[in-house]
Design a protein around this nucleic acid. Sequence first.
DNA 1: GACTACATACCGACCAGTCGGTATAGTTGT
DNA 2: ACAACTATACCGACTGGTCGGTATGTAGTC
Lengths: 227, 227
Amino acid sequence: MPTTTKLDNRRAKVKAKGAELGSSRERLLDAAVRVFARDGYSGTSIDRIAAEAGLSKGAVYWNFASKEELFFALLDERVDRRIRALFDQTEEPPPGQASEGQVSAGLSAVLEQERELVVLFHEYSAMAVRDPRLRERYVERNVMLRDGLARAFEARVEAFGAAGGVEALGERPSAVDAQELATAVIALADGLSIERLTEPEVVSEELFGEILSLILDGLAARAKGCI
Amino acid sequence: MPTTTKLDNRRAKVKAKGAELGSSRERLLDAAVRVFARDGYSGTSIDRIAAEAGLSKGAVYWNFASKEELFFALLDERVDRRIRALFDQTEEPPPGQASEGQVSAGLSAVLEQERELVVLFHEYSAMAVRDPRLRERYVERNVMLRDGLARAFEARVEAFGAAGGVEALGERPSAVDAQELATAVIALADGLSIERLTEPEVVSEELFGEILSLILDGLAARAKGCI
DNA sequence: GACTACATACCGACCAGTCGGTATAGTTGT
DNA sequence: ACAACTATACCGACTGGTCGGTATGTAGTC
């Protein structure tokens, strides 16, 4: 169904011009981040977003095709971008250092400053469970993150293997591979960030890094055969 | 504000009689589990729940004070009960055995069979982020779970300490205490169960148990000083 | 005067909650 | 045993309000 060719033309132009700082489009997205995070997707009305941006409903429907498209744009241009940036900086660790501390610090910083993004991410995931279209995009993003992290682990293990003379992965029957490790580490990060939303005091800044290094120590110990 | 004394009296009686199998109340709760899990809280209408239960809106408002109360009842009588049962069986592990496998198997079984409960739990947590009243109850439940798990870890470490002659916790500067460990393990379980909702194929049955034993191995290795 | 970038008024759908009505079960007086 | 009365458990029409989306108006710009 070629629903909205006219609209697509319009949006193409908008996308070209809309990046200007302080443009209505940006103000709407800023407001949408706040309101969606505060009230949830279905608890948020278009009128409220418009009002919070100092604009009207007309401005919203000029810049976005629908409420859903506004939400998608927000995920693309705010949430995903942020997460990708975090993981890019993770993949190239500062020269020759163990990176758990860095990763944990980076993650904690994001979680601390950008509570709204975490809430939106949470909302995103809850919606992806139901909506197949959303799920497709959601999974695509997850695969990217997981693969990146898995590669980072493999690189680390190779370096470790060269130093310690032992391969940690794929040797023992109970060993986990890099993909599984990445899956679990992402799950841990997600889980901790979610717990932090309701109980900030029990999830310390360093916890993620500590557990991550515990896991890696466990791997190393198994590789050394000292368990 | 003593709002609904009449209603409370009524509900007390209902609670006494309502436990009968196949009662309207139970049928409504069964339907509510399905519909809330399928369509989300705000995507669910009272009429739809009633229809799915083969009853009418009047039946819903006879048995429950409001949509919110219906949802709370559902969390109490279905979700929480189930989770508590799982953790109770976790706290007394089968005689003298390492319990990671059991815990992981139990968790996986629940996640497999009761996808609806996981979805509802997810929804619950998303709502608790916003609604202070809900958050209070949510946190209360979390504290219970965490304390229980922390005690289990402490018991395990004591046993381990007796066998290995070393205390694993509170010795090294980078060591984590039982509460933090429990927090992380719950976060891991939550994260994995959420990931499993959208990507069932990447979260294997055994993954949780494997990571858990990796973490414990890491602790043991540190205690032995072989890292 | 045509196009842009909105504002405003409006429509139809949906929905939580209310309320009068009602069928059935239970209780009480005789 | 039977009528009179009451409480229980539900039905379904209705209300007030909200909200996504649309249609139309309008000030500024080229």
